[in-house]
Write a protein that binds this DNA or RNA. Structure first.
Lengths: 239, 239
DNA sequence: CTTGTTTAAATGTCAGACATTTACTAGACT
DNA sequence: AGTCTAGTAAATGTCTGACATTTAAACAAG
């Protein structure tokens, strides 16, 4: 695979990295393939070798590439990717057609993890956590009506789930909130965003909020699972 | 805080990064502090500015530092650390006195997550997963007798739990196996490694293995929780 | 007191040369 | 013919010095 099909480079710090990463995430190269040389990338995008090396350093840190002096740069397979690297989430978020295998893997993780997180949140949430949850839910409610505000609605959705992870008051769980954005943003491209499904989604979110507010860990677990069942349908995952 | 108390630099690629990271993890600097300048670090350790920048790039990617042109390098607070970055696990592993707050946070995460993971493993494990689990358990058994083999025993312990995460056959859960090493290695420094506690630990691990082998998700969850209760005692966590 | 300008100091970037590692090739030797 | 060896090319890694850019603080003018 070559660089020819990639969009032009617009400048900016992490832009080149994002460009290359998204091409890799989209499957432009196969695992084991040799990635273009530093100098080729540099001349193709008209940037210095330094910028190329900076970008490749990021991709290497994310587990997308493996570099060895003399041999070159090799593309690693999906199981080696560092899905929890925040940069990865950023790159995945902007991708219109995320690999279905990835969407499914992230969903499966959320389905097994988020009930637990919601339960912890019900036990540990403090006033400000509840405020964050309520504000996010309020935002979801107000943007549910018009189709224009799809992106904004998704942002509130992300904020709601992120607030849940934060409310667990655990440093590790909180980091995983990064995974939410690409997972929820995938909804925009995959679901029809119909009014009745949105109402259903809202109702299920409200149950999570209520359970956490009343410090009922069991109910929170169950409600979180229900939210994700709704998500599965909207994502087109049979399950 | 200055660099004076740090051990000398021994060469090697990621060595400088490890040195500085462990100093940060050990709390040599407070959040918000200004980190030493590139040139000062370079002259102190007698390395080029390039090497310093490479090291600082790693620490920045791990969320330990925040760098801005003109201002300098600032130390970030613990809640911003990327605990799931594999480099972080590596740095934490070698640290003799890990911050108790961190040990506790990682343990709390494991206590809530690993039962779920064990349950998934019971559902998804294949032949090779079981082989990995059995080999790790076998290693734990054989190194349990003599106190000399503490480190080796811990490695088998890590391998056992890592095999559990892998057996879940989920790309995201699998990544979190990285967190196991620092968590389990902390046991070496904190537990007395007495024979009876080791026997108890072994017995509880065996129950996890048996439950996964017989594809009993419920039992696996319960058994995993029992293993972690044992770990809590050995870590000196009251819970 | 506020605003604007200058200055110093830090990180960021560039360019070129060189070092090191790796894979391949061509010969020499048995 | 086969095998070992030396050599060569090509890739990433490193060093160095100069310069660019950003930031904060000092200072001066209004």
């Amino acid at each position: 695979m070559s660089l020819d099909t990639l969009p032009p480079h617009q400048g900016g710090a992490g832009n080149l990295a994002r460009l290359l990463a998204q091409a890799l995430l989209a499957g432009h190269w196969q695992p084991g393939d040799i990635f273009p040389r530093e100098l080729d990338i540099g001349s193709h995008f008209a940037v210095s070798r330094n910028q190329v090396r900076n970008a490749l350093t990021s991709l290497t840190a994310a587990g997308l590439l493996e570099r060895t002096a003399g041999r070159g740069t090799q593309v690693r397979e999906m199981s080696d990717w560092h899905l929890l690297n925040p940069l990865m989430s950023e790159w995945m978020t902007g991708l219109v057609n995320l690999d279905p295998q990835l969407v499914r893997a992230i969903y499966a993780f959320r389905y097994s993890a988020e009930p637990v997180v919601a339960g912890l949140a019900a036990q540990a949430a403090e006033t400000e956590d509840l405020q964050r949850l309520e504000m996010a839910f309020e935002g979801m409610t107000q943007t549910a009506g018009n189709i224009e505000a799809r992106a904004e609605h998704a942002e509130y959705d992300v904020a709601f789930h992120d607030a849940t992870y934060r409310a667990s008051h655990n440093l590790v769980w909180r980091q995983m909130g990064h995974l939410l954005r690409p997972s929820i943003m995938a909804l925009i491209h995959r679901s029809q965003h119909r009014t009745d499904t949105l109402d259903d989604s809202l109702a299920r979110h409200r149950q999570v909020l209520d359970a956490i507010r009343s410090r009922d860990a069991n109910s929170a677990e169950i409600a979180a699972r229900e939210v994700l069942r709704r998500t599965a349908i909207d994502l087109g995952i049979v399950n």
